[in-house]
């Protein structure tokens, strides 16, 4: 059963993308002008040709690596700082009192509104962009970590403490692994927000990068170029969030399989199939038989 449904799902996913591009082509090539005006927009084939042309240039790949480098640095920094801040505020009352209010006041400020601050603060544009990316990803990661750490059942910690484990042992052996499923959720949201902000920051203050190139294409009225930039951002975003999700699933393989809408359950982790568990781990629902 699963091979067939798997194929069906793949076909459906590809079909939905293809249909979107097809509809785009239909609306733009037909110069449709209802209330929305599609006659100024480049057609899918124009964008496709521009994409192929750009992929052949060094410029495209320089921009792409620049953006990836910025988001990579910013996101990694945010992951380290966010997890640290989340754990600290969840586990230590003085830390929560000290850091909590500042974080809660800074959190609602959109990271992109920090551009002026970044320009004043950092000697180079480059550092400013990384700063903004990091600030954007930091909050979802920190908040998710804080909640995940608080949700770790106290019993696991008690088990390790009655083995003679101290604070550090509890942190490494219980708190961090126990909070990991929630942290992965935060990282997943964080990488999405990081893309929004790295592109916006590049549009405002960059000299290279996919965001910068997209915006400069607009300023010279190169509309297919704008769409090439958008498509590139979409693909990069999909690839990076996919990588984060995959890494997350690898790290949290111990969780019970998640119930899907249909009766068809996710297959059990490879090599671990066999005797069905009687009870689910309390935090997640088991698939009804």
């Amino acid at each position: 059963m699963s091979a067939r449904t798997d194929l069906g799902r793949r076909a459906l996913r590809f079909g939905s993308l293809a249909a979107t591009v097809g509809l785009w082509q239909l609306l733009t090539a037909g110069r449709v002008r209802l209330w929305l005006r599609f006659d100024h927009l480049p057609t899918a084939t124009e964008v496709g040709r521009a994409f192929v042309r750009q992929v052949g240039t060094d410029q495209y790949w320089i921009d792409l690596t620049e953006s990836l480098r910025r988001i990579g640095t910013g996101f990694l920094l945010a992951a380290v700082l966010g997890v640290a801040a989340g754990v600290l505020t969840a586990r230590s009352r003085p830390a929560a009192d000290l850091l909590g209010p500042v974080l809660e006041v800074v959190r609602p400020i959109p990271a992109i509104a920090l551009v002026p601050v970044a320009i004043m603060l950092f000697p180079e544009n480059e550092q400013g962009i990384v700063f903004i990316t990091c600030a954007a990803a930091f909050f979802p990661i920190a908040v998710a970590t804080r909640h995940a750490v608080r949700a770790v059942p106290p019993r696991w910690e008690e088990a390790v403490r009655t083995m003679g484990g101290g604070r550090a042992r509890v942190l490494w052996s219980v708190v961090l692994p126990g909070a990991l499923p929630g942290v992965v959720g935060g990282l997943s949201v964080g990488i999405g927000v990081a893309w929004i902000c790295v592109i916006s920051a590049e549009m405002v203050s960059g000299q290279f990068g996919v965001g910068y190139r997209t915006w400069s294409a607009y300023t010279v009225l190169d509309y297919p170029g704008v769409f090439v930039g958008m498509a590139t951002i979409g693909l990069l975003g999909r690839a990076t969030s996919g990588a984060v999700e995959l890494a997350g699933r690898r790290l949290t393989g111990w969780l019970p399989p998640v119930a899907t809408g249909a009766a068809a359950a996710a297959p059990p982790a490879a090599g671990r199939a066999g005797r069905g568990p009687e009870e689910a781990w309390p935090a997640r629902a088991e698939v009804p038989a």
């Binding site: 019993r155 009655t162 052996s173 219980v174 692994p177 990991l180 111990w254």
Partner: peptide, 15 residues
């Protein structure tokens, strides 16, 4: 460590 504790359930680390 000289006093080990056994819980009713869910005392094991699930990962």
């Amino acid at each position: 460590a000289e006093r080990a504790l056994v819980f009713q359930e869910d005392g094991l680390l699930p990962w």
